[in-house]
């Protein structure tokens, strides 16, 4: 068995066994559609299905940089690792930065491992001229690929990428949650240190709550979901009769490769639905109900690949 295959086997054995016992996980389903306009109209108009209701509540803009090793070890081991900048349409909410490792969705189980370093603001990167906050470096890349995706990388951008890589090299053995998990999964320090940005992109995310009205809850025989007050969205505080069950995102994304690839742009459209019910098994049944309605109403096609995997395939990476 080659070292890569050994790592692949180890990663999957761990992901499927002990790992979920102490991971943050999310249970989600993904869909693509033959006609994107239909689902877009449904989401933006807060449409209802027979069993459930939706409430379109916000539009987020995400900027992502995905990392991988020069030989795309993460892609091959069905993982993705990204820096993300989140901007919401609520001006009161601050812009946030995160660093997240995720597993690909498994065909038998829609639970994905995810582990995130949720706050990057206080991480500093040492440059020739002094200390630079990590988010400042990320912003330089996001801005470049958002505004000038076709222009060659300037000296400044090349330098920025080098600084991000230097941060990764220094922190590979540090207390950065995704690196801690990669080490646990069997990645050696040298492999983590070789991670570098491979694609940068922007996503417009339209977010909806999926809920059951009091009547719908009764028809589905659902008890009230239990959430900490701090975690309960405003909509449900204003409408205490509505029962929050799922959360959905309609994503329109564009990615650009940061390496020499066959294709130079990847456009992705997908609809993601996530279980929010406090009893995961019941939430899964609700997911099934909603999925059946999406298929019947919009000819939804279930999909498993992450945006990273989809983008890399569109760039021509065959793994």
């Amino acid at each position: 068995m080659s070292p890569i295959n050994r790592l692949y086997t180890l990663v999957f054995t761990l992901l499927l066994s002990v790992n979920f016992a102490f991971s943050q996980t999310e249970e989600q389903r993904k869909y693509v559609f033959e006609n994107n306009h239909e689902i877009e109209n449904f989401i933006l108009s807060s449409g209802t299905t027979e069993a459930l209701s939706t409430h379109f509540h916000s539009e987020y803009t995400y900027y992502d940089i995905y990392l991988d090793t020069p030989d795309f070890l993460l892609l091959r081991t069905k993982l993705s690792l990204r820096f993300r900048k989140r901007i919401t349409d609520d001006k009161k909410r601050p812009i946030t930065y995160g660093f997240q490792l995720k597993s690909e969705m498994d065909s038998l189980n829609s639970v994905r491992m995810e582990i995130e370093e949720t706050e990057l603001d206080f991480y500093m990167v040492k440059s020739d001229t002094g200390w630079v906050p990590l988010p400042t470096l990320l912003d330089s890349l996001f801005e470049h690929y958002d505004k000038h995706p076709d222009q060659p990388e300037s000296e400044n951008i090349v330098k920025t990428i080098q600084l991000i890589e230097s941060w990764i090299q220094f922190k590979a053995e540090g207390a950065i949650a995704p690196f801690q998990r990669l080490r646990h999964l069997g990645f050696v320090i040298r492999e983590i240190q070789s991670l570098r940005p491979v694609t940068c992109g922007k996503t417009i995310r339209r977010r909806s709550h999926i809920y059951a009205s009091a009547e719908q809850s009764e028809q589905l025989n659902l008890e009230r979901n239990r959430k900490k007050t701090g975690d309960l969205p405003k909509f449900f505080k204003k409408n205490p009769g509505h029962n929050w069950l799922l959360e959905s995102s309609l994503d329109l994304a564009v990615f650009y490769p940061l390496y020499t690839s066959k294709e130079h742009v990847a456009r992705i459209s997908e609809y993601e639905v996530e279980n929010k019910f406090f009893q995961p098994e019941i939430g899964r049944q609700v997911l099934e109900i909603y999925e059946a309605e999406l298929i019947a109403k919009f000819r939804a096609i279930p999909k498993m690949d992450s945006k990273y995997k989809q983008a890399m395939e569109l760039f021509g990476e065959e793994r």
Partner: peptide
């Protein structure tokens, strides 16, 4: 330092 911070922050150390 990193041994200590790993003990305090690494959820995979159980």
């Amino acid at each position: 330092l990193r041994n200590s911070t790993a003990f305090l922050t690494d959820r995979d150390l159980t």
